[in-house]
Nucleic acid binder design. Structure first.
Lengths: 298, 298
DNA sequence: GTTATGCTATTCATTATTGAATGGATAAAA
DNA sequence: TTTTATCCATTCAATAATGAATAGCATAAC
């Protein structure tokens, strides 16, 4: 085996990749939990050892040279292999303790998960939970999360999934709003009302059109992409809005608006990586999520 | 990104793979140029961080657990990516100095390369040469060599190759042997002579059979796989033997035995990895080998 | 122009890592 | 059995790597 290959410290490549990704020593340092001088030294050592120039030193940061760009691909392949390795390792943990990261939508994280997690903590005090609220999908391969609770069918490969059931949606308004504007009568009447909608997400519009109701972005008086904040807007009386019926019906201030047409249902999927499935603590949290979410997916 | 993934030092994986490959801390230490306690600590750190058991401690060394075996594949993928990276880096070196590893057959390394390398050193004193004599083929992907001089067409992918010409073979015997046994007359007469052959390598037998001459392993009085030692056996008068004519004819003690049938020719191929082709020092050594080998491939 | 911000390079005390040495344990060879 | 050769774990002095602090730049905003 070549001397260079054997003696070159792999952690230098780790640093190289971090600097290449973040574009600066400082950024890479933050990502790796190291300091900026350390990263600077790592890059210099790497360049000196390989006798090549990997970055152009710029006042605003480090920029890859063409050669560095060529090397980056290989470093990324190393990172992927490392991710796979780390996944196998996590799946091999045998004790019923440790951290479990649960990714789910902002809305669920706000309105559903706290109760479930509180119960989990009582039953499994040795399992610490990281809750990752996010409406963009996580990459479970890179362990951005261990278990994801999602409102759509996961499409990543090597995943174990379970469809827990469906969440029914309803249209709601606050009493204050209804006192002011009255309740809508039928689909056409919606045009005379304020509706709270999503901003960049066009789910509502597409669903309404699918129902045969003309809809456009302009019909929304107030828009918000964060679903928790969205719901607070509706509760504050900004207009009509949609919400999971199981949550909204518990709120005495909110009134459900009966609709002539049925709203779509949201499927609830539990997901984890195949390699993690046999880890006791992941399996346990999976089980508790399965049970805990049941009341919400009637 | 997961904390474990980001914070786990990749050099620990490097150590893990070395221990998995060699089966011992000491062996891994030798391979990595580190010490046995260091490797021991690395493995322990890795196991503690990932909270898994990777090896079974045995008195004779370390043995992978099933989980460790699963992880090994990923570690190997990392090593492959690392090899690719290191190759790109080596190809990106811009100076006409450094080390170049030349792999070639034991015989060539003994009888041909020294002169060529001596001349190289005069013309390019800043290029240091590692000569790797080996009759098994090198893996240029892992940079076991930078340039290989081979007697067969290389089959690895991503390789740059050049057919320099062919080497002609002849049958020779020492004067001492001929004085004792006389020269053979024709192919049938070979049975009354001692022939020095290869041991596990059956090239000679296959070639003779291809020529229509009945041959078997038993016809060899003395056998040796190392071709340099083989030739010394022939020179010492152990029997008839084959050799490159260009080399053998320079030896006043050796007499060529004229044969009625033609012997096969050996092709000479120069090989390097695609990624290294544009490195100035590799290109320079390639060029000098091309020129230097010319007299031998008439 | 001036200020604020974000970055890199350098220094130096601190900390963490390393390896030589040692002891103990096991398996193979004499 | 005794010897020999490996191997691993542990210890501790020496070494190497680290990060906080600082200074110096370049850019962007005012």
């Amino acid at each position: 085996m070549d001397k260079t290959l054997a003696s070159l410290d792999w952690s230098l490549i780790q640093s190289f990749l971090a600097v290449a990704d973040t574009g600066s020593l400082s950024g890479a340092a933050r990502r790796l939990g190291a300091s900026q001088p350390t990263l600077g030294r790592h890059i210099r050592t790497l360049e000196n050892t390989l006798k090549v120039e990997l970055f152009q030193r710029h006042a605003r940061g480090f920029q890859l040279t063409p050669l560095g760009r060529e090397m980056r691909g290989h470093a990324e392949r190393m990172a992927e292999a490392m991710a796979g390795l780390s996944l196998v390792a996590a799946g091999g943990e045998t004790r019923l303790e440790g951290d479990v990261r649960i990714a789910t939508s902002v809305f669920m994280a706000h309105h559903v998960m706290p109760g479930i997690i509180a119960q989990m903590r009582q039953q499994e005090p040795d399992i610490r939970i990281d809750l990752v609220p996010s409406d963009s999908s996580e990459n479970l391969l890179f362990r951005e999360a261990d278990i994801a609770v999602r409102m759509y069918r996961p499409e990543q490969l090597d995943m174990v999934t379970k469809h827990l059931g469906d969440i029914s949606l309803g249209m709601f308004a606050s009493r204050a709003y209804l006192d002011r504007k009255g309740a809508p009568r039928g689909a056409e009447d919606l045009h005379h009302h304020d509706v709270v909608g999503y901003d960049s997400n066009d789910d509502i519009i597409r669903e309404m059109r699918a129902m045969g109701i003309p809809a456009s972005r302009e019909m929304f008086a107030v828009r918000c992409d964060n679903q928790s904040a969205y719901w607070e807007l509706v509760r504050a009386g900004c207009g009509l809005g949609f919400c999971q019926t199981n949550i909204a019906r518990k709120d005495p201030e909110m009134v459900e608006i009966p609709l002539a047409f049925p709203l779509p249902h949201l499927p609830v999927w539990l997901t984890t990586h195949e390699a993690l499935r046999h880890s006791p603590r992941i399996a346990r949290v999976w089980e508790l999520l399965d049970v805990g979410l049941r009341p919400f997916v009637s």
